[in-house]
């Protein structure tokens, strides 16, 4: 017993070092799997406040670009206004019976919530954004984030007033996507090299792909609303060993100048996720 104490006293620094290392590596592996770190929400709150100060300065430099994006989005939305469309034939009248419309039970599936970006990186292998919206404003883990130009990422940690978003530019990010032309679905990920290009895999070789084709979010995704722009095809490579194309996608979103984004809530996300995990259990 005495010898053990002597051993501990003699190697106290080394033992401390080992304990700290083990602690670090446990945190790291746990975080990259589940995105739940020790003190995550407390730390999120503090770093969020500091990031907010910084983005207050830096947002001035991209005001012009932000303005242009918002004006473009306004124009697009204005084009969708009802009074821009005229019935083709004036002799016939369109009547929408509001009663039947209500009773068929249309429901709102996606809700959009505006959020300011207070932190953003594009240089690392695991890029995250920080938004100034948190659980008090109704943000939950798993919600999707879109910008005026295209999709951005998925919320991974939430504190009271801030939330962290795993951007598309993250080695673990995966989004279900489809070609606009023929609805061929595949999955989007990032190879970690260039922040303006993504990779679209598992597109069948029967699809007629050309450079410049638009890629949208697919209807299979649980958190992203369907038909939002992801990017355009910039390069096509076909692996002779498989039946799939690997496409290089130029992102629609400019990740370098993000200022304001929308957090999208799918009101049936929990239900869909639960069903998916149940069907996975039956497979095991």
């Amino acid at each position: 017993m005495k010898n053990i104490f002597i051993f501990i006293r003699r190697n106290f620094n080394f033992l401390c070092f080992i304990v700290l290392q083990v602690l670090c590596i446990t945190m790291l592996t746990r975080y990259s799997k589940t995105h739940e770190a020790f003190f995550a929400s407390a730390a999120n709150e503090i770093t969020g406040k500091i990031n907010k100060q910084y983005s207050g300065f830096s947002s001035y430099f991209t005001l012009k670009e932000t303005n242009r994006q918002l004006a473009e989005e306004n124009a697009r939305l204005r084009n969708m206004l009802k009074n821009n469309f005229v019935a083709p034939d004036s002799s016939r009248k369109f009547v929408t019976d509001s009663l039947t419309k209500d009773s068929t039970g249309r429901y709102r599936k996606f809700t959009f919530l505006l959020a300011e970006v207070v932190g953003n990186t594009v240089t690392s292998q695991t890029n995250y954004l920080m938004l100034e919206r948190g659980s008090l404003q109704g943000v939950k883990k798993g919600m999707s984030v879109v910008s005026p130009q295209g999709i951005v990422g998925v919320v991974v940690t939430v504190s009271d007033n801030y939330s962290t978003v795993m951007s598309l530019l993250h080695r673990n990010s995966k989004v279900s996507a489809m070609l606009k032309k023929d609805k061929n679905a595949g999955s989007i990920d990032w190879d970690g090299s260039d922040p303006s290009y993504l990779t679209l895999k598992n597109i069948s070789k029967s699809a007629k792909v050309a450079k410049g084709d638009t890629v949208l979010t697919s209807t299979y995704s649980a958190n992203f609303p369907p038909n939002l722009p992801i990017g355009t095809v910039a390069g096509i490579s076909s692996d002779p060993a498989s039946n799939f194309y690997t496409l290089k996608i130029k992102t629609a979103t400019d990740f370098f100048t993000l200022q304001y984004v929308y957090i999208v809530e799918n009101s049936r996300y929990a239900e869909q996720a639960r069903l998916e995990s149940m069907s996975q259990k039956t497979n095991d």
């Binding site: 401390c16 602690l23 670090c24 975080y31 932190g119």
Partner: peptide, 30 residues
């Protein structure tokens, strides 16, 4: 011991900004 803990604190603070808890902290304690 203080040196070790200071290194750990420095690394961990940076980690919470870059969302990689433990990565820089491990290198700093080393």
């Amino acid at each position: 011991l203080v040196l070790l803990l200071a290194g750990f604190a420095m690394g961990l603070s940076l980690d919470y900004f870059t969302n990689s808890p433990g990565l820089h902290a491990a290198a700093c304690t080393l």
